[in-house]
Amino acid sequence: MSIQHFRVALIPFFAAFCLPVFAHPETLVKVKDAEDQLGARVGYIELDLNSGKILESFRPEERFPMMSTFKVLLCGAVLSRVDAGQEQLGRRIHYSQNDLVEYSPVTEKHLTDGMTVRELCSAAITMSDNTAANLLLTTIGGPKELTAFLHNMGDHVTRLDRWEPELNEAIPNDERDTTMPAAMATTLRKLLTGELLTLASRQQLIDWMEADKVAGPLLRSALPAGWFIADKSGAGERGSRGIIAALGPDGKPSRIVVIYTTGSQATMDERNRQIAEIGASLIKHW
């Protein structure tokens, strides 16, 4: 067993022997301040990774656009098919120029040779490549099948209805392509620590998230040296922004954090800054 596999296998073990965790309302004060600064709703939840206990939450059962955070769930569904012998990570998928959609920095470079399922998941999570996500959605049967996968996990809230990039439209009061912070946090925890996926697939999923290259201005910008984070960000229309993450000190994750916002007129930089400040408060009061 590799060191990384050992780390993920012992996530519940280490967490069980940690000192009790206590909620700190100071972080919620910052979440509410972010709402004021952005002029928009902000949803927040913080779960203990081992027990699933909610440590703090704000608007945990209000719907927010998922945006690209759905790509972690998508690759979880792909990995479940791999575990069941219905898919192979090494299978190569070929596609054409007509398949390319807006923001496809990886797939646009491989029109000639195609990409493997493993490479597509890596591109979808680490670079948020939209064509990679659409190609992977095709392998599982489309958005409705991802929703069905989530329902089978016990998540009857999260739903995907459309493809990239239309799913980022974020129309107010439109339930399409949305989740709730509580539902997303619980589902992410199941994917990373539950028995739904094999140990190898859980490790692969967290490795992809740990290698995320496009979430630097968010929670990662607030992390002290030595902290662990595996995350996936999302951005959408109407001032929408979000991030889902597993993080913790001492090089291992111990909490799940989900943050979503929508309806702001603020710039992307300002949305990023507010999420980073929430992260800084979380870490300060850990």
Results as ranks from 00 to 15, higher is better:
24 H>M: 11
26 E>D: 10
27 T>N: 05
28 L>P: 05
29 V>E: 15
32 K>Y: 12
35 E>F: 00
35 E>M: 05
39 G>D: 13
39 G>P: 04
43 G>E: 02
44 Y>K: 00
46 E>P: 02
48 D>P: 00
49 L>M: 14
57 S>M: 08
57 S>L: 09
59 R>T: 03
66 M>C: 07
68 S>H: 02
69 T>S: 11
70 F>T: 13
70 F>V: 14
73 L>A: 13
74 L>D: 02
75 C>I: 14
76 G>R: 00
80 S>D: 15
81 R>V: 08
85 G>E: 08
86 Q>S: 12
87 E>W: 08
88 Q>E: 15
91 R>N: 14
91 R>C: 04
93 I>A: 04
93 I>S: 03
95 Y>N: 02
96 S>G: 11
96 S>Q: 08
98 N>V: 07
102 E>F: 08
109 K>W: 08
109 K>D: 06
110 H>G: 12
114 G>R: 04
116 T>Y: 05
118 R>G: 10
122 S>Q: 11
122 S>M: 12
124 A>Y: 02
128 S>N: 02
135 L>F: 13
135 L>G: 03
137 L>R: 00
138 T>G: 14
139 T>K: 14
140 I>S: 08
143 P>D: 03
149 F>P: 01
151 H>S: 08
155 D>C: 02
156 H>G: 09
158 T>R: 01
160 L>M: 08
161 D>M: 06
161 D>N: 08
161 D>R: 03
163 W>S: 08
166 E>F: 11
169 E>G: 10
169 E>H: 12
171 I>V: 15
172 P>L: 14
174 D>R: 02
175 E>R: 11
176 R>I: 06
176 R>V: 13
178 T>Y: 02
178 T>L: 03
183 A>P: 09
184 M>L: 06
186 T>I: 08
191 L>F: 09
192 L>I: 07
194 G>S: 10
197 L>S: 05
199 L>F: 14
199 L>I: 12
199 L>D: 09
201 S>I: 02
203 Q>F: 15
203 Q>W: 06
206 I>N: 06
207 D>S: 11
207 D>F: 09
211 A>R: 14
212 D>C: 05
215 A>D: 00
216 G>R: 10
217 P>Q: 13
218 L>G: 04
218 L>V: 05
224 P>F: 02
224 P>G: 12
225 A>I: 09
228 F>S: 06
230 A>R: 01
233 S>D: 00
236 G>M: 02
237 E>M: 08
240 S>P: 01
241 R>L: 04
242 G>W: 00
243 I>Y: 07
244 I>A: 13
247 L>K: 01
248 G>H: 04
251 G>N: 08
251 G>K: 15
257 V>I: 13
259 I>Y: 05
261 T>H: 15
261 T>G: 04
262 T>N: 08
270 E>L: 08
272 N>Q: 13
272 N>H: 05
275 I>F: 15
281 S>K: 15
283 I>N: 04
